[in-house]
Simulated scan of single mutants.
Amino acid sequence: MRQDLHFVTFATRDLDAARRFYVDGLGWRPLLDVPGEILFFQSAPGQVLGLFDAVGFAEDLGLDAPPAVAGVTVAHNVGSADAVRELAAAMQAAGGRVRVAPAPGAFGGVFHAIIEDPNGVVWELAHNPGWHVADDGTVSFGA
Score class of each variant (00 low, 15 high):
residue 38 I to N: 02
residue 24 D to A: 15
residue 70 A to S: 11
residue 100 V to D: 12
residue 90 A to M: 03
residue 121 V to D: 01
residue 60 D to Q: 14
residue 59 E to I: 01
residue 51 L to H: 00
residue 67 P to H: 04
residue 33 D to S: 15
residue 58 A to Y: 04
residue 57 F to R: 05
residue 104 P to K: 09
residue 36 G to S: 12
residue 61 L to S: 09
residue 91 M to I: 02
residue 45 P to Q: 14
residue 106 A to W: 11
residue 59 E to N: 11
residue 92 Q to Y: 02
residue 43 S to W: 09
residue 98 V to C: 10
residue 44 A to H: 08
residue 96 G to T: 03
residue 25 G to R: 08
residue 78 V to T: 07
residue 68 A to C: 00
residue 60 D to I: 10
residue 59 E to H: 11
residue 73 T to E: 15
residue 54 A to K: 06
residue 117 D to R: 01
residue 97 R to K: 11
residue 126 A to C: 13
residue 91 M to R: 04
residue 98 V to T: 11
residue 32 L to R: 14
residue 114 I to S: 08
residue 92 Q to W: 04
residue 68 A to Q: 12
residue 81 A to C: 05
residue 35 P to G: 09
residue 23 V to G: 03
residue 37 E to S: 14
residue 52 F to A: 08
residue 122 V to Y: 00
residue 125 L to R: 06
residue 86 E to Y: 06
residue 95 G to A: 05
residue 122 V to K: 10
residue 31 L to I: 10
residue 60 D to S: 15
residue 24 D to M: 10
residue 28 W to H: 11
residue 94 A to M: 05
residue 127 H to Q: 05
residue 61 L to H: 13
residue 41 F to S: 02
residue 50 G to H: 09
residue 36 G to I: 12
residue 103 A to S: 14
residue 62 G to D: 07
residue 87 L to R: 02
residue 37 E to R: 15
residue 30 P to M: 11
residue 112 H to R: 15
residue 74 V to D: 09
residue 128 N to W: 07
residue 50 G to N: 09
residue 32 L to V: 14
residue 125 L to M: 07
residue 129 P to S: 09
residue 33 D to E: 15
residue 70 A to C: 01
residue 116 E to R: 06
residue 106 A to F: 13
residue 88 A to E: 06
residue 58 A to S: 05
residue 72 V to A: 05
residue 96 G to L: 02
